[in-house]
């Protein structure tokens, strides 16, 4: 059978206006790059010239690491991990009820929904370093300030991540439960929770990973743990100890990331 000729004019894959848009957007992005390079004075030569210095520092100052310092490092690492663990757990408990107020599927009340969203955006827009500095001012140096700051910050992340999952769940079982006379708590318990629990657990683990790294940084500004140790050794120019700390951190974070990712891939 011969192919039927539909039209004599040429068929283009894209509309002509698409090419104009493409050129426009590309030009805009290039201008942004140009401005960025001018503003920051970035030059390839300067970036490359930094590498030999960096390399020399690695070899001469960091090696050999001071392995005698190992027990102290592990001790502080455990504190850092505990800060991350406690703040993540508290965040998970705090975020759970708020989750349902901040998803449009369940909370149809525009005022409380909108209010929730605004508060969450504000909390997330404060960098957690600033949060810790504030907390240190309130409760003083040490791990409690780190725990508080991380808890607030990661609760906001958890709510944000999971409420989006709540909004994309299968609504048909919910419809069924409502039609059978189930009330809102029952709809949440039997229609929503079974669908989001694995997602929520997976997000909690992910936030634990983030918090572990964040609590290292936060220790630097006075929230206890291994971060505080790094700061102290740096100001003493003990790069051999710093080398050991970085090495131990690398191992610990890799192991925890691996465990967390394995568990999360099973949950999904």
């Amino acid at each position: 059978m011969k192919r039927k000729k539909t039209s004599s004019s040429k068929v283009r894959l894209f509309k002509p206006s698409f090419y104009i848009k493409l050129i426009g957007v590309s030009a805009g992005v290039l201008v942004l790059y140009y401005l960025a390079i001018r503003q920051t004075n970035a030059s390839l030569a300067r970036m490359l010239s930094a590498f030999p210095i960096f390399f020399r520092m690695l070899i001469e100052d960091f090696f050999p690491p001071d392995f005698g310092y190992f027990p102290t490092v592990v001790n502080q690492l455990i504190e850092t991990f505990n800060i991350a663990l406690i703040s993540t757990t508290l965040a998970a408990v705090l975020a759970f009820p708020l989750l349902f107020f901040s998803s449009s599927t369940l909370n149809r009340h525009p005022l409380s929904y909108g209010g929730m969203r605004v508060v969450l955006t504000i909390v997330r827009s404060i960098p957690n370093i600033i949060m810790v500095v504030l907390m240190v001012a309130v409760v003083g140096l040490g791990s409690v300030s780190g725990i508080l700051a991380l808890m607030i910050y990661s609760a906001a992340i958890l709510i944000k991540l999971t409420s989006e999952s709540v909004e994309s769940i299968d609504e048909r079982p919910i419809q069924a439960i409502k039609a059978m006379g189930g009330n809102t708590p029952q709809v949440i318990r039997y229609g929503v929770l079974p669908q989001i629990t694995p997602i929520y657990l997976s997000h909690i683990l992910y936030v634990l990973e983030i918090n572990l790294k964040a609590s290292v940084v936060l220790g630097f500004v006075g929230a206890g743990g291994i971060g505080q140790l790094i700061r102290r050794q740096m100001s003493l120019f003990r790069y051999d100890r710093l080398g050991l700390i970085i090495f131990v951190l690398f191992l610990a974070i890799s192991v925890i990331d691996y465990i967390s990712q394995t568990v999360r891939s099973r949950l999904a």
């Binding site: 048909r172 079982p173 419809q175 069924a176 059978m180 039997y190 229609g191 079974p194 669908q195």
Partner: peptide, 13 residues
């Protein structure tokens, strides 16, 4: 009681 075209079961339960 209602029976739906797409069954509307909670799949993970």
């Amino acid at each position: 009681g209602i029976i739906f075209q797409d069954y509307n079961l909670v799949k993970r339960m």
